[in-house]
Amino acid sequence: MPHADTLTVVHHDDTKTRYTDVRYQLIRDGIRIWSDEGEHSLTDILMTHAYRRGKPKN
């Protein structure tokens, strides 16, 4: 799974949700995100922006 230091999800209504230090998986219905707060599953996404600043943490 890809790792992102910052992951921004843009929803169909143009709102944005930002996550930090996450793993994510793009799926047919949207995106799954794993963070320190747990697993999130979003289906109303328009696009995502993922940024990495170096090697992912193990």
Rank of each mutant, 00 (worst) to 15 (best):
residue 34 W to L: 11
residue 46 L to W: 08
residue 24 Y to D: 01
residue 18 R to F: 01
residue 42 L to S: 02
residue 28 R to I: 02
residue 58 N to H: 08
residue 3 H to E: 13
residue 3 H to Y: 15
residue 4 A to D: 00
residue 57 K to P: 15
residue 8 T to L: 15
residue 18 R to N: 03
residue 16 K to G: 04
residue 55 K to L: 10
residue 21 D to W: 11
residue 26 L to A: 05
residue 52 R to I: 09
residue 53 R to Y: 13
residue 7 L to Y: 08
residue 57 K to M: 07
residue 11 H to T: 00
residue 5 D to M: 06
residue 10 V to C: 07
residue 15 T to G: 07
residue 58 N to Q: 12
residue 47 M to R: 15
residue 36 D to H: 05
residue 15 T to P: 08
residue 54 G to D: 07
residue 4 A to L: 14
residue 42 L to K: 09
residue 15 T to Y: 12
residue 20 T to G: 03
residue 16 K to D: 06
residue 58 N to D: 12
residue 50 A to P: 11
residue 37 E to L: 04
residue 23 R to T: 04
residue 42 L to F: 09
residue 18 R to C: 03
residue 38 G to D: 10
residue 14 D to T: 07
residue 48 T to W: 15
residue 5 D to W: 04
residue 29 D to P: 02
residue 37 E to T: 00
residue 14 D to L: 12
residue 24 Y to S: 03
residue 22 V to Y: 02
residue 47 M to K: 12
residue 56 P to K: 06
residue 49 H to L: 14
residue 42 L to P: 00
residue 58 N to V: 11
residue 51 Y to I: 12
residue 14 D to G: 04
residue 58 N to M: 09
residue 28 R to L: 13
residue 43 T to R: 15
residue 23 R to L: 10
residue 47 M to I: 02
residue 28 R to T: 07
residue 19 Y to M: 09
residue 15 T to I: 08
residue 56 P to T: 01
residue 57 K to D: 03
residue 57 K to H: 10
residue 52 R to Y: 01
residue 37 E to Q: 11
residue 17 T to V: 09
residue 2 P to E: 06
residue 57 K to A: 05
residue 45 I to T: 10
residue 40 H to I: 01
residue 52 R to F: 01
residue 45 I to H: 09
residue 53 R to Q: 12
residue 6 T to A: 10
residue 40 H to C: 07
residue 7 L to A: 10
residue 21 D to C: 02
residue 24 Y to A: 04
residue 41 S to M: 13
residue 17 T to F: 06
residue 28 R to C: 06
residue 42 L to Q: 05
residue 21 D to Q: 07
residue 41 S to N: 11
residue 20 T to D: 13
residue 7 L to C: 08
residue 10 V to L: 14
residue 22 V to L: 00
residue 25 Q to V: 05
residue 46 L to Q: 12
residue 18 R to W: 04
residue 16 K to V: 06
residue 19 Y to N: 00
residue 37 E to F: 01
residue 39 E to G: 02
residue 22 V to P: 02
residue 39 E to H: 13
residue 30 G to L: 04
residue 39 E to C: 09
residue 47 M to S: 11
residue 55 K to H: 07
residue 18 R to H: 06
residue 35 S to Q: 03
residue 54 G to C: 06
residue 8 T to V: 14
residue 4 A to G: 05
residue 6 T to M: 14
residue 52 R to W: 03
residue 21 D to E: 15
residue 52 R to K: 11
residue 39 E to A: 12
residue 15 T to V: 08
residue 50 A to F: 09
residue 47 M to V: 00
residue 42 L to A: 01
residue 2 P to D: 09
residue 25 Q to Y: 05
residue 35 S to H: 05
